[in-house]
Nucleic acid binder design. Structure first.
Length: 581
RNA sequence: GCACCGAUAGCUCAGCUGGAUAGAGUACCUGACUACGAAUCAGGGGGCCAGGGGUUCGAAUCCCUUUCGGUGCACCA
C-alpha cells in the first residue's frame, strides 16, 4: 500500500476526466504531476503541483485548473478538503482513517512493508568494491562496500533483479608485485633475512601466505629464478588475498553474488570480440594522441597506438586500448568485462568507484554506450574520501608508521552496524568525516543510537504490555480498532509511516540509500516526540489501564513504527536492537 | 591548462531532480524524570544557500562565469 501513489492516481484520473469533459486540452503530459507531503504541515496532508505544471501547456491560469480539480478531488471519500493556495498549489487533507489504515497494513506486511514493483524485475548489475587483490581492504573500500551493498538491497526492495558483483583485477602487473612480495615472505619463512625494496608490499598480512607457501613447497623454491615460481605464486597469493577480502566483506555483512576475474578474460577471445564490436562501428583506429595541455610529462613522445574513439560518445579525448608494444592496456579488459555484462543481459549497470577513479567515468560510459548502442545505461557512483578523526584531530594514515586503518580495524573498533549506518548517513558524492570518538559515543550526538533507541523503546513497551496481560500478538494488533487513535500527535506518526513506500521509491530512483537513513531518523524523532507527550497527557500513553482495546490500538501504531525501522535498517544492513541496556 | 565532485546556521549535514516563510543535529540559553527506558522531549536565538550574471509565474536546486577546497589527468592498474 502506498497512499501517495493512490492519491497520485486519483489526481491523474481527475485530470483525465477533465480532459474528456473538455475542461483541459487533450494533449497533455502528466509526467511531471507530483503528489508529495507539503513542506509545512499546516498547509495540509498532501499537495499536488498539477495546476502549475500543466498551466503553460494548457494555456490556462493555474488557479483555474486548480479550482476545478479541487472540486473533483473533494468528491472522493478519502479527501476531506482540497484548497487552492499560493501560486496554484492544491492542498489536500485526508480523512484520519485513511492514514490509520496504514497501521494494520504495515504490521501484516512486516519487513516487506514498502516493497515496490517499480523496478519491474529489470536486471541490474551493481559492481562495487572491486579492490585489487593485493592486500586487506581499507577505509575507502569500506565506504564503497557499504554504499554498494545498501544500494543493491535498496534496488532489490524496489523490485529490481539485482546482481552484486566484484571485479577482481588479477591480470595486471600489480599481481606480479604481489607474487614477488609473497616470495620474500616465503624466503623469510625458510629462515632467510629479506629486504623489502621499493615496489614490493611490506605488509605483514603476507607473513601467513609465506608460511603457507612453505607448507606447500618446503624449500624447493628457495634460490630458484623467478621464471620457475612467478606464475604459481601469482595464483596462490591472489587466491589468498581474495580469501582475505571475502572475510573482510563478510565481517561487514557484504556478500557478493559474482566474483569476476579479469584474468579469466585472457585467452578466451572476449577482449578481441568486444573490440571487434567497437571496430565494426568504426570506433577503433590507429593514431597518435595529442600531448596533454598544461604540464607536459618529462618523457612525453608521440606514439602510435590503437585507440578507441570515445569522443564519439561524450569523452574528452580518445583512449588507448593497446600499448605501443601491442599489449592491451588496462582499459581493454575493462571494456571486455562491461561487454560481458551487457551480453549477460543486464538492463542497467551501476559501478561504484572511489573518487580517485573519477577520470574513468566518461571513458567507461562511452564504452558501454558504444557497445550497447545506447541501450544499456551505465550509472557510475563515486564515493568520496573518508577523512578519519580521533579526538577531533585529523588522523593521518601511513603504512610505514603502522597507522593504516583497515576495514578489519574499523569493524573491531566500532562494529559493523555503526560503521554501516554512519557511512550511509551521507551522500556518496560528499566527503565523509569519520570520528572514532563520536561514532562510539552512545548519545543523541549519534544518529545510530537514536534510531536504535526508538526501536528498543518500542520493544520495551511490547514487553510491558505482555506482562500486563494485553494480547500484543500480530493478529491481535492487526485486528485492533484504530479508530481509538486520532490525536494529532498520533496521526503525525501514522503520516510518517505512510511516507515510507514513497520515500523508498524515490531513494531507489535516484540511487541514494542515504535518504533511508535520514528518513529513519525523522521517523524515530516522531516516535520519541509522541512518547514524551504521554508524560503531560496521560491519554497519549501507550498502555491505558483497563482499556485493553485502546492500548492495543496505540501499541499497533508503535508496532508499525518498529516494522518500518526494521525494514529500513534491513536495507542499510544494520541489525535492529531489541534491547540496549 | 583540462575534466569530475564539493561550497547551505559557529560546527557536522539534509533539502524529496524547479515550488509556499530554506530544515535537522550539535553548540549556546530556558524548561520536563514519585507510571510505558531522560541514550528522550518541549521552547528560544542563530542564514547574502561562496560571489556575480542568466533562464521563468517561481531558483539553494537548471545554464554561464569567478573564487576557494578535494580528486584525477598520455602505454601504470
Amino acid at each position: 500500500m502506498n497512499l501517495f501513489a493512490d492519491i497520485h492516481s486519483l489526481v491523474i484520473d481527475a485530470l483525465t476526466q477533465m480532459q474528456s469533459e473538455g475542461t483541459l486540452p487533450a494533449d497533455l503530459d502528466f509526467a511531471n504531476v507530483t503528489v508529495e507531503p507539503p513542506r509545512d504541515a499546516l498547509h495540509g496532508d498532501m499537495a499536488t503541483n498539477a495546476a502549475m505544471v500543466l498551466a503553460k501547456a494548457a494555456r490556462m491560469k493555474p488557479r483555474d485548473i486548480a479550482d476545478t480539480l479541487a472540486i473533483k478531488l473533494a468528491a472522493d471519500d478519502r479527501i476531506t478538503s482540497a484548497d487552492v493556495a499560493g501560486p496554484g498549489f492544491l492542498n489536500l487533507r485526508l480523512a484520519p482513517d485513511v492514514w490509520l489504515s496504514v497501521i494494520p497494513d504495515a504490521i501484516k506486511t512486516g519487513n516487506d512493508f514498502g516493497r515496490s514493483t517499480m523496478g519491474g524485475g529489470k536486471k541490474v548489475n551493481v559492481e562495487y568494491v572491486s579492490a585489487n587483490p593485493t592486500g586487506p581492504l581499507h577505509v575507502g573500500h569500506t565506504r564503497g562496500a557499504v554504499f554498494g551493498d545498501a544500494l543493491a538491497s535498496l534496488l532489490d526492495f524496489a523490485g529490481y533483479n539485482v546482481t552484486r558483483e566484484y571485479y577482481i583485477n588479477d591480470g595486471g602487473a600489480q599481481v606480479d608485485v604481489l607474487a614477488r612480495s609473497a616470495y620474500l615472505r616465503y624466503l623469510e619463512a625458510n629462515g632467510q633475512e629479506v629486504q623489502f625494496v621499493d615496489g614490493t608490499y611490506p605488509g605483514d598480512y603476507l607473513v601467513e601466505v609465506g608460511e603457507d607457501l612453505k607448507a606447500k613447497y618446503g624449500d624447493s623454491l628457495v634460490g630458484k629464478p623467478e621464471s620457475e615460481w612467478l606464475a604459481d605464486l601469482r595464483e596462490f597469493s591472489t587466491a589468498a588475498m581474495m580469501d582475505l577480502v571475502r572475510k573482510d566483506l563478510a565481517s561487514i555483512g557484504v556478500k557478493m553474488d559474482v566474483f569476476f576475474s579479469e584474468k579469466s578474460l585472457y585467452g578466451t577471445g572476449l577482449i578481441e570480440t568486444a573490440l571487434d564490436n567497437l571496430d565494426a562501428k568504426g570506433l577503433i583506429y590507429q593514431g597518435t594522441l595529442e600531448p596533454p595541455k598544461g604540464k607536459l610529462p618529462d618523457d612525453w613522445e608521440p606514439r602510435e597506438q590503437t585507440l578507441f574513439k570515445s569522443t564519439e560518445h561524450g569523452d574528452d579525448v580518445d583512449r588507448p586500448v593497446k600499448k605501443s608494444d601491442g599489449a592491451w592496456t588496462y582499459f581493454a579488459p575493462d571494456i571486455a568485462y562491461h561487454y560481458d555484462k551487457i551480453e549477460r543481459g543486464f538492463d542497467e549497470l551501476i559501478d561504484i568507484l572511489g573518487a580517485d577513479h573519477g577520470g574513468y567515468v566518461k571513458r567507461m560510459k562511452a564504452a558501454v554506450s558504444a557497445l550497447s548502442d545506447g541501450k544499456v545505461p551505465l550509472d557510475i557512483k563515486l564515493t568520496q574520501l573518508v577523512r578519519l578523526y580521533k579526538n577531533g584531530e585529523p588522523f593521518k594514515m601511513s603504512k610505514r608508521a603502522g597507522t593504516f586503518i583497515t576495514l578489519h580495524d574499523l569493524v573491531k573498533l566500532v562494529g559493523a552496524d555503526v560503521t554501516r549506518f554512519v557511512m550511509l548517513t551521507r551522500k556518496n558524492d560528499a566527503p565523509l568525516d569519520f570520528d572514532f570518538d563520536k561514532v562510539l559515543d552512545q548519545s543523541k550526538d549519534n544518529p545510530v543510537f537514536y534510531v536504535q533507541y526508538a526501536y528498543a523503546r518500542i520493544n520495551s513497551v511490547l514487553r510491558k504490555a505482555n506482562e500486563a496481560g494485553i494480547d500484543v500478538s500480530e493478529t491481535a494488533l492487526i485486528a485492533s480498532d484504530t479508530s481509538n487513535l486520532g490525536h494529532d500527535a498520533e496521526l503525525a506518526v501514522a503520516r510518517k509511516i505512510a511516507e515510507w513506500p514513497r520515500l523508498l521509491e524515490l531513494a531507489a530512483k535516484h540511487n541514494e540509500p542515504h535518504r533511508i537513513a535520514f528518513y529513519l531518523y525523522e521517523l524515530a524523532s516522531e516516535f520519541h516526540s509522541l512518547w514524551n507527550r504521554g508524560k503531560d497527557d496521560p491519554d497519549l500513553r501507550f498502555l491505558q489501564d483497563d482499556k485493553i482495546a485502546v492500548s492495543q490500538a496505540k501499541i499497533s501504531l508503535i508496532r508499525a513504527v518498529s516494522v518500518v525501522i526494521s525494514a529500513g535498517l534491513g536495507i542499510l544492513g544494520v541489525t535492529p536492537m531489541e534491547e540496549m541496556r
